[in-house]
Amino acid sequence: MTVTVPTAAEQKPAARRTRGRTSINLVVGGVLFGVIVAVAVLSLFALPYEPSDTTGGRLQPPSGEHWAGTDRLGRDLFTQLMIGARLAMLTGLGSVAIAAVVGVVVGLVAATAGRWIDDALSSLLDIAIAFPTLLLAMLVVAWRGASLDSAILAIGLAGSAVIARLTRVTASRVLAQEFVKASRTSGTGTLRLIRLHVLPNVWPTLIVPLALQFGGAVVAEASLSYVGLGSPPPNASWGRMLQEAQSTVLVAPSAAILPGLLLVATIIGVNLLADGLRDVADPAGRSIR
């Protein structure tokens, strides 16, 4: 038996219908996302200019020397965009890692501990899911100060509630399976049961939501930056660059358009990739084959 939400029988026709499209999703998403990852990695080793180099002249349009133009202090925007890519990846990875670890642990505790703890955690999760991310972020900022780390922590915690609930539901379903009873009867303790059977069977259902959260985290960080909760240029996220550029958007439109385009490209890339991963991650697909 599989542990996906719809039964294998329900899923088969849909899977067949989308199989052709899925590979396109994977390819387009992979290319978009891959380019941004490559740029982020490259920014660690080589940048066209020093980030704080102000010799470029103010608010220059894109040119051969400054591919994306300069900001109002004369710093190279292409350099900043590359750093932004790195920060976007860091935001996505960091908050997804927090969401995954916190969410999976809480979800597993709820699924395996007694009823009392389960009920208490479920009510807490209901509240946490309803809690606005922005409000949570402000609380974290009030606690730790405005920084990228604070944003990542807040976004990760906000995302963990959904992951926790998903983990609880899926883990409970796995725990009710006959093979868990069979494993239990051979003396497998709870922790090993989780490691051997529950986690491997829960992962596939988490991959897609986590990939989607990656995109969501980048957008959320951009919104937080836009209201001023991010680190300032030259080490700014794309969201913060957008905020910086808004007052001069009529004079130097490329400073606002380019980070916006990159944001959109990242989100589309990640979502297409998540869509493509759905089939790969689907355990039903594995057992049908």
Partner: peptide
């Protein structure tokens, strides 16, 4: 469980983890 009592159930397909190789499952006990 395991050392004193063991069990076989009705539905053999459901009695083993679909994502784990048979040898690995057998190795644990």
């Amino acid at each position: 469980r395991g050392s004193t009592v063991g069990a076989v159930f009705q539905e053999p397909l459901a009695s083993l983890d679909p994502l784990m190789r048979i040898g690995a499952q057998l190795a644990w006990p």
